[in-house]
Amino acid sequence: MTPPVVEMSGVGRVFAGPPRVEAVRDVDLTISQGEYLSIIGPSGSGKSTLLHLLGLLDRPSHGVYRLDGVDVSTLSERRRTRVRGERIGFVFQAFHLLPHRSVLENVELSMIYLRVPRRERTARAVATLERVGLGHRLDFDPITLSGGERQRVAIARALVAQPSLLLADEPTGNLDSGNAASVLALFDELHAEGLTLAVITHDDGVSGRAQRRVRIVDGVMADVEAEVVA
């Protein structure tokens, strides 16, 4: 049996300060293969810290984090960077696309640091962009695209490295409702195809699309399956 994609037990993150801040306390979180999870919470609740821990951008102060069954909580920064590139796909609220580089180059960027050969990079980037419905925008500069298209480029960039986990941080925060809906529909499709997703948001409309919701308040996590909105 395959291990869960994410398995956190007793994970905490303390910022030494001053003032000393316990941003995340004793989190136990399991995300199974193919699960669609949303993490909700008000700002300052520790959401972002949890995202950084999940995305290997930060290291827990204590506790154990297993990614694909392997303990990554004690990896050196160099190895953490490598695992992050290969196993985690990020989608940000601000897209973070490189200006003056084509849509195709932006998507290929995810594979450059993984030593994927050039020819394969291009083929995979084109296939993934077609998958997210942007096959006609390959040579465009991202600054000429609409917000929804930009976020779909970012999603393609996250998908193209075939990550174990897609981490989205307020993915619809900068989008109007129409574009937000199309991005969320894309997430639904990806989930249906077997992708493991974790979406961090404060928007109930967004979190409602997930299979399972967890809430984080003052660094403490609780499942909110009981109060699922229809």
Binding site: E77, E86, L98, L109, S110, I112, Y113
Partner: peptide, 16 residues
């Protein structure tokens, strides 16, 4: 800065 952050997120090391 954000470009650097993004590159780090997709697997670029400090040396890259």
């Amino acid at each position: 800065v954000s470009e650097i952050g993004l590159r780090r997120a997709v697997g670029a090391g400090r040396s890259h």
